[in-house]
């Protein structure tokens, strides 16, 4: 008796890359382009978005909406504080609210997206949009390195 065997290959969108591999300059440029495009889309989706940036695993900025006044270094400080505050757990996302505004952080596929918004935005919607944005950047990176055979979904965040 024979049994039909099915095999699926599923991309691990949530897993960190963690391989520490060096990207070629072309890949870095493609990633930065995709990240910039995604941040533009995010700005259109979130009218209350004040500033946002995407960082790689080494906390280097991949794309920023505006880096006036050392915003990126301050965002890295926040990422480090969140990592320290997570203890033994692995950070997935964070939402910090103050009287002047709100900060959202989402980590996905080895990338971190930090966004500052106005007060009283819809938190779940903002986090969802940010996660989709990071997946879009990650997909663009995969598409660039594999020749565009996979994940030909919507290009929008």
């Amino acid at each position: 008796m024979t049994w039909p065997v099915c095999c699926y290959t599923v991309a691990d969108e949530n897993g960190k890359t963690g391989d520490g591999g060096e990207m070629s300059p072309a890949d870095q440029t493609a990633l930065a382009d995709a990240a910039s495009r995604v941040l533009d889309n995010l700005g259109e989706l979130e009218p209350q978005l004040v500033n946002a940036g995407i960082f790689d695993e080494a906390r280097n900025p991949v794309a920023l909406t505006d880096d006036s006044g050392g915003w990126s270094s301050q965002a890295v400080e926040l990422l480090e504080a969140l990592k320290a505050g997570s203890g033994d757990e692995v950070l997935d996302s964070a939402h910090v609210a103050s009287e002047e505004g709100e900060v959202f952080v989402v980590e996905e596929s080895g990338l971190s997206l930090v966004a500052v918004t106005g007060r009283f935005v819809l938190a779940s919607l903002t986090s969802y949009d940010m996660r989709m944005a990071l997946r879009d950047v990650a997909r663009s990176g995969v598409r660039n390195t594999t020749g565009g055979a996979e994940n030909e979904g919507s290009g929008d965040a």
Binding site: V50, N51, S68, G69, W71, L78, A81, G85, E100, V116
Partner: peptide
């Protein structure tokens, strides 16, 4: 975390 977020918002 709150202090880092506050500074980020101020920027």
């Amino acid at each position: 975390i709150a202090e880092a977020a506050r500074r980020l918002i101020e920027f």
